[in-house]
Amino acid sequence: MMGLHAHYNLVQTDMLQWIQHCLENIVSEQFTPIGSTQGKSGPATPLNPRRRGLIIGASTGLGAELARKLAREGYALALLARSKEKLDALCQEINSQGGSARSYEHNVTDYDEVPNLLLKIVADLGGLDAVIYVASINQPPGGIDKYNFENDRQMIEVNLIGAMAWLTPVAEMFQSAKAGQIVGISSVAGDRGRVGNPGYNTSKAGLTTYLEALRNRLTRRGVNVLTVKPGFMKTEMLKAAPGPTPFAVEPSVAADHILKAMKKRKQVIYTAPIWRWIMLAIQHTPSFIFRKLSF
C-alpha cells in the first residue's frame, strides 16, 4: 500500500530490507495476531529442543520425503506448495505420528507474497533454523531441434527466480542471526548446457551459481549453504525426461543423503553419489566432442 509507505518514514538503513518490504506491503491495517502457535509436540524446552524447518515445494516427491524425515528428526515444519489438499494430507500424516507440521498454500512465482509469508512462518514456528528450496519444474522443448520460450520462461521463474525470491530474505535473516542452514535442490543438469533441455540446464546452472554465491557470503557468518545435485529420481518429474534414466534413486533414498549432508553441514552433494564422478567426466569432456553428443 502506497499510503503506508508514505506513512512510515523508512529511512533506517539498519532495518532489515525484507521487514521494510513487509511494512510496505501490508494489505490491511487491521491487527491480526499471528505466531503464538505451538505444534502438537508441545513447546520447545532445553530437554525437548526443536529445530524449525521450512520446505518450499513439499507436497510430493523429494519435498514430501524430506518433510517426513525431518519431522522424525524432531523438526517443527512449515510446508509450502501449490496444492493445499496434498499438503494437508501430508501434514495430517506427520502430525498423527507425533510430528509437527503446518501447511501454507503458495505459488513460488507469487514473488511479492514471499516476505510477508516468511514473516508469518517464522512467527508460527517460533524461529527458523533450516530452509529447503525444492520447488522445481522440468518442461523440455520436445526434441533437440525444438524451441519453446514459454516453457523456458516458466522453468526460470520457478526453479531460479522463485528460489531467489525465498532465499534472499532468508539469507538476510540468517546473516543477521549468524546462524541457520540453507539447502537448495539444484540438479546435475546445471553442470553443463546440453542439447536436450537448454532452459532447464540454465535454470539449474543459475541456481547452483546463486547458491555458491550465497555460500561464499554466508559461511563467514555461521550459515551453512548446501547445494544438492540429484541425478535421476523416481518422481513425477522423471516422466518428463527423454531417453534413458540411469542410476535413478527413490526420493526417500535421496532424502536420506540430504539429511546426512545437512547434519555434517556439507557444501555440495550429488545424489546418487556416483553422479559426482559422472559429472566430473561430463564437465571435462571437451566441447568439440560434447557438441556432437545427443543427450
Binding site: 506513512h7 512510515y8 518514514n9 523508512l10 533506517q12 539498519d14 532495518m15 532489515l16 521487514i19 511494512l23 520447545a44 524446552t45 532445553p46 529442543p49 517464522v122 517460533g126 524461529g127 527458523l128 533454523d129 538476510e172 535473516m173 543477521s176 542471526a177 549468524k178 546462524a179 541457520g180
Partner: peptide
C-alpha cells in the same frame, strides 16, 4: 507517524545457552 526503530534479526539465548530463539531485536 514515522517509525524510527532499528530492527535486527538475532539469535537470542537463555543464560545457560540451552535454548535458541531467533527474534527481531
Amino acid at each position: 507517524m514515522p517509525i524510527n526503530l532499528n530492527v535486527t534479526f538475532t539469535q537470542l539465548e537463555n543464560f545457560g545457552h540451552s535454548l535458541q530463539a531467533p527474534s527481531y531485536r
